[in-house]
Amino acid sequence: MSLRSKNISWTSGGATLVRGVSLRGPEHGVLGLVGPNGSGKSSLLRLLAGLRRGTSGAVLVDQRPIEAMPRAEIARRLALVEQHATTDVAMTARDVVALGRLPHRGALGCWSARDEEVVEGALARTGMTRAADQSWATLSGGERQRIQIARALAQEPRELLMDEPTNHLDIRHQLDLMRLLPSLGMQVIVALHDLNQAMAFCDEVAVMSEGRLVGQGPPAEILTAEVIRKVFGVEAMIGAGPNGPRVSFF
């Protein structure tokens, strides 16, 4: 078990956003983090990425507290794709992906053949090679998301953390992106809104509610009509769909 949180809580500006969450990172494949707005998904991801320090509890990377690790080492170990990446800097898509090599290069290291290889590989795996020389500003929402994933891959992490990457994407790009995740061959923790996407594409789901972890396990076991009613406050029915179970709402 490489990345996990142990009873972590986080209070910011007087509000407790995460309450005693002990999350196991996925052994392999994709862990979907679901929960209503404000349930603490984004905050938990930030804690797991080491961007915020928990008020109590710990985030452990291979049994080591994340605070004890230098930032560059964390960045080589796990990568974060934020919900909405924006910049005013006039960069090409490839420049953005190349940012992912920063933790490997240090302040003065030269751009090596290996850096080049990793960047091109990341572009290829996300299907963005053809758009590599396009300016970031001209990319569509889906392409930007892919470039950010390519940037994360260029960090060569073992875990990938993603905060609602399908937001703002049309349905085709959503599905493309969700299909991409298992093919990356790394452990992915992804915050999701769409319960059916969690059902269909995640090996495991974790349900958050009011800052607490309600349950973690295989989607079919965890996402029951009862849990959905309790957590989301809607009536749902789990039925059979073309690709496994499906959630329908009333």
Binding site: R46, A49, G50, L51, P70, R71, A72, E73, I74, A75, R76, A79, L80, E82, A85, T86, T87, V89, M91, V96, L99, G100, L102, P103, R105, G106, A107, Q155
Partner: peptide, 19 residues
Amino acid sequence: ARALDAFAFGEDAAASLGV
């Protein structure tokens, strides 16, 4: 200079790039 490059997408992005 490289740390400044990392700020292109904001402070959290820079931090997650090891800055």
